[in-house]
Design a protein around this nucleic acid. Structure first.
Length: 960
RNA sequence: GCCGAAGUGGUGGAAUUGGUAGACACGCUGGACUCAAAAUCCAGUGCUAGCAAUAGUGUGUGGGUUCGAGUCCCACCUUCGGUACCA
């Protein structure tokens, strides 16, 4: 009987649904294990072979844990709010909910095809009101809390109000954007609007006017992690800075905890480094400089207070608040001109010209508190409004940027650090001896910094401070397809939270999804909706894409709960995610936000753990291997442009076009006789992506190609050897646009899901990125056929009940050991290899014994769930193989063919001698042997090779 | 620039603690079966020399530690990923 995956797989696919095989309970005495995949955004293109890589790995792990007696939570859902569906709606008028649901149906089919063990009864969809009710609810908790730095946790805003009423805000230590100090009496006299404005500066979800990333093409603002190199991550549209009133999340309040708690996680060093980088902690001094002739002081942040004697000027960001007050009449024109110039430049311009230094003098001077010199205050683009205080003291002798700036504008340079002891150090390295600095002279930089912290604090001109690169997350989107804010404004503009029984606040129905005028969301046009609460108007922005994905892993624990986001009982049972698998593209965005939300919920006592994802594995990206042909579009001869010719020529490479011989082939096609190289001027060629499915390896199927692109049906092809057309290749992102996507459905149809799963695992380490290549899949198919043939001969099932031999046990237990260990360390490619070795060996010894094949079936079940289920049933078992007990490794079956024996060499006692052979203890004399004795001893034993090791052991291989 | 990861046959990749480098698979070569093809099976396959046994050589480059290095140390080169006026 032959192995036919298609019948087997469709049968079991249905059976698993009918028997609810993968449905799990929150009531279990078994230990829990939570295996989570990053849920997908259901795009219109469907899944390609790159998407399931991580899902297959996590599915194997989940199944393995289940077979080992764990109650495994392994859910799946959809990150269903997002820009593409809305862009599609704008173009076609199809409601995003409709297109999203269609895509979800398609995703579900594709996922089911591959045989995952998801518990679909727990499916979540972030765009479902029953889900986003709780996204809105958590948002309201953020709105109602502030971060108390004394308790180092989130605390309800009512407590802050009570403190304000009793004592004002002087002694409040909280994460805030508030600089006004007020007393209890002053607070009480404020209007509702004023109070609201002040509280906004403390809330964890708050509104502020700030410089945001505005994307004109998408008509919305974006968070920092949604912008790459000045372009939007979705769609690649240009992004600019704009001042707007927006909702934000005060994630910076959690910066220190986000950084420190990384140490508790089993994440890769690379990923932790990325997060540390993004948080960007730096220790330094906050200092206040007097401004000559002004009451105000200039606040700066520096990590190098030791260089203050070299601070010969100050630089402010052009957007700094003090700029108008500082600018003198003389410099007014110059400053205004400069601000105009800065305003005209997009983010992309600024990034492209990092080397270019620009700046202008304000006319004002600050007082260097240590040199007492008047130092000029400049404006410069290289100082950023958002980082630190938006102002710096410039030390041109010890900072690259300051040096360039001073050089360009002729500012004074005083050398303050002597680096002669450190010839390899760069200008920015914090090493050397301080010079020209009065009391600091002779100190090492490190000591000088410590000394300065003391002095600054004693003089009362500043203090030690920690700064972060991390910014608060922009939380408003001027879009339709997102969670509406459960916020309404009264006539004064005071923000009021909706009550819990008013949730979910659902999206209004719209016909037209174009943004409303004035940079507003399409929701603004739904006037009835906006005004549904008397005397109030609803917020018209919606929440960003990361809102729903910041807590979905908690919803899976209790997905159908209508009263809470998840019951306390469910959360206490499942605790946190034991294993999280997903791509690095979420290294800073999603992972930072969900960690913050989780910590916030921890502060509120709603989750028991400080971190959501204990262990995280980043699967690599599967790239596409594109196939290209090259098309001659223009051909120049004797200076005559022959572009109008209707000849289309397709060739496999530029090299072919550059070869002289080929011109003689091409020339007649262009109607040129007697081709003369001297008259040839060149030609223009463009590359053309062709559908990889029309190509067998690199050979293009010409007929299929002409059918696919009828406009080329009369094209001439420049054929390579054997009259086969060889395509050019290029590795790039897998994308529908580049025609290099491979659909898993096609492979499942052709080879079966088991084969597809194992082949994806066989490609290489899960963490590694690699181009997709189908050519090795035959090897896995061969393996499955061979495996099947262990159980079956031509007549049918052919199994023996005989006791296995020692050799057969050894083959099985070698595989059990290797595969169990490799699954634990997430090395699935070596597992597949181990299966191949095992089956090859069993084939060699012609083993068809139940006592070997039964455990082997269970061993393979996580990898190939269908074929093993079929064989398990055919062997006469009642239940599913996926409910069986995973075979346990037993060391007694591994024949000891190595005996360790102590040995001394040249009179020194060394560790052990390892004799590789079936030697008995009697054969080896129970005494310490000298090296010569070893050799002598070994000579009589038909030793093939002796490797003499002095330190650890002697390795001897005996001829078989 | 800074941070991180990695360089092994024609290809994807093994080698888990420093112990016979190249497992497993693809590809290729030869053979069996077949009218033929597919499928299947057998043998070979790092490179160089040789009919062969065999010898030499070999994990990006150059050094080092060690009886022994793909693995550890130093310097360098290359590739990929992240990040970038972060004071």
């Amino acid at each position: 009987m032959q192995y036919h995956p298609e019948n087997i797989e469709s049968k079991w696919r249905k059976n698993w649904v009918d028997t609810q095989l993968y449905k799990i309970s929150n009531d279990s005495t078994q230990p829990k294990f939570y295996v989570l995949d990053m849920f997908p955004y259901p795009s219109g293109a469907g899944l390609h072979v790159g998407h399931p890589l991580g899902y297959i790995a996590s599915d194997i792990f989940a199944r393995y844990k289940r077979l080992n007696g764990f109650n495994v939570l392994h859910p799946m859902g959809y990150d269903a709010f997002g820009l593409p569906a809305e862009q599609y709606a704008i173009q076609t008028g199809v409601h995003p909910a409709v297109s999203t649901d269609e895509n979800i149906v398609r995703y579900r089919e594709q996922l089911d095809n591959i045989g995952f063990s998801f518990d679909w009864s727990r499916e979540v969809k972030t765009s479902d009101p029953s889900y986003y009710k709780w996204t809105q609810w958590i948002f309201l908790q953020l709105f109602h809390h502030y971060y108390d730095q004394d308790q180092d946790k989130a605390v309800h805003i009512d407590q802050l109000i009570a403190t304000f009423e009793a004592k004002g805000n002087k002694n409040v230590k909280a994460a805030n954007t508030q600089d006004e100090i007020f007393t209890s009496d002053e607070w009480k006299q404020k209007t509702a609007k004023q109070k609201d404005d002040i509280l906004m500066n403390y809330r964890l979800a708050y509104r502020k006017t700030g410089y945001v990333n505005w994307c004109e093409a998408l008509g919305t603002v974006l968070a920092n992690d949604e912008v790459k190199d000045g372009f939007s991550e979705r769609g690649g549209h240009p992004v600019e800075k704009r001042a707007m009133m927006q909702w934000s999340l005060r994630i910076t309040a959690y910066a220190e905890r986000l950084l420190n708690d990384l140490d508790t996680l089993q994440w890769s060093d690379a990923l932790k480094a990325m997060q540390r980088n993004w948080i960007g902690r730096s220790e330094g001094a906050q200092m206040f400089f007097d401004i000559v002739g002004h009451g105000k002081k200039l606040e700066i942040f520096t990590t190098r207070p030791d260089t203050i004697f070299g601070a010969t000027y100050m630089v402010l960001a052009p957007e700094h608040d003090l700029v108008p007050q500082l600018t003198t009449a003389d410099q007014k024109d110059a400053v205004e001109k400069y601000l105009e110039y800065v305003g005209s430049r997009s983010e992309i311009d600024r990034m492209a010209e990092v080397k270019e230094v620009t700046g202008v003098f304000t006319g004002a001077y600050a007082l260097n508190p240590f040199t007492n010199k008047h130092i000029p205050i400049w404006l410069g683009e290289y100082v950023l409004k958002d980082y630190g205080t938006g102002a710096i003291m410039a030390v041109p002798s010890d900072d690259d940027r300051d040096k360039v700036f001073a050089g360009k504008f002729g500012l004074e340079i005083v050398d303050v650090v002597d680096k002669t002891d450190y010839p390899d150090a760069t200008l920015n390295d914090k090493v050397g001896k301080i010079i020209n600095s009065d009391f600091l002279n002779g100190l090492e930089v490190k000591d000088a910094i410590a000394e300065m912290f003391d002095r600054i604090e004693k003089l009362g001109i500043g203090s030690k401070k920690i700064n972060y690169k991390l910014r608060d997350a922009n939380y408003s989107r001027q879009r339709y397809w997102g969670e509406p804010f459960p916020i309404a404004y009264d006539k004064e503009g005071v923000a009021h939270a909706l009550k819990e029984d008013q949730l979910p606040l659902t999206l209004p129905e719209l016909e037209n999804f174009q943004p409303a005028s004035g940079g507003k969301s399409p929701l603004a046009r739904a006037e009835d909706w906006v005004g549904q609460i008397p005397e109030m108007s609803l917020e018209t922005d919606t929440m960003p894409g990361f809102a729903g994905s910041s807590w979905y892993f908690l919803r899976y624990m209790d997905a159908a709960n209508e009263n809470e986001f998840a019951s306390k009982k469910a959360i206490d049972y499942w605790q946190d995610v034991d294993l999280y698998v997903g791509g690095t593209e979420h290294a800073v965005g999603h992972l930072m936000y969900s960690r913050t939300w989780h910590k916030f919920l921890y502060d509120l006592g709603m989750v028991p753990t400080i971190e959501p994802f204990k262990k995280l594995v980043n699967q690599g990206m599967i790239q596409g291997s594109s196939r290209l042909v090259y098309r001659v579009t223009e051909f120049y001869y004797k200076g005559v442009d022959l572009a109008k010719t209707n000849v289309v020529l397709l060739t496999d490479s530029y090299e072919n076009l550059n070869s002289v011989d080929k011109f003689f082939i091409i020339a007649p096609l262009f109607g040129i006789e007697n081709f003369d190289m001297n008259n040839f001027q060149g030609m223009e060629v463009i590359s053309l992506h062709i559908d990889v499915n029309l190509v067998d390896g690199v050979y293009l199927d010409l007929e299929a190609f002409k059918k696919w692109r009828p406009e080329f049906k009369n094209a001439n092809f420049l054929l390579e050897q054997n009259r086969k057309f060889i395509c050019g290749t290029q590795v790039e992102k897998m994308s529908k646009r580049l025609y290099n996507t491979v659909n898993p459905d096609d492979l499942v149809a052709k080879y079966g899901a088991d084969c597809f799963r194992m082949y994806e695992m066989f490609l290489g380490p899960i963490e590694q990125s690699k181009p997709w290549d189908t050519k090795g899949i035959d090897g896995v198919q061969k393996f499955l056929r061979k495996y099947w043939s262990l159980y079956y001969n031509e007549a049918g099932l052919n199994l023996l009940n005989d006791a296995p031999t020692a050799e057969e046990y050894k083959i099985l237990h070698t595989a059990i050991k290797k595969i169990s260990e490799d699954i634990e360390r997430f090395s699935f490619n070596t597992c597949v290899s181990a299966f191949m070795v095992c089956v090859n060996e069993l084939k060699r010894v012609e083993c068809n014994k139940r006592q070997i094949l039964e455990p082997l079936t269970i061993l393979l079940a996580p990898f190939a769930p269908f074929i093993t289920e079929e064989l398990w049933a055919n062997m006469g078992h009642e239940g599913s193989v996926h409910k069986a007990q995973f075979p346990q490794f037993d060391a007694k079956h591994l024949v000891q063919d190595t005996i360790e024996y102590p040995v001394s060499i040249n009179g020194k006692k060394r560790d052990t001698i390892m004799l590789s052979a079936q030697l008995t203890q009697e054969e080896i004399q129970a005494q310490v042997m000298e090296l010569d004795q070893v050799k002598k001893y070994v000579e009589g034993k038909e030793i093939q090779k002796v490797i003499i090791v002095l330190k650890r052991m002697v390795n001897i291989v005996v001829k078989e």
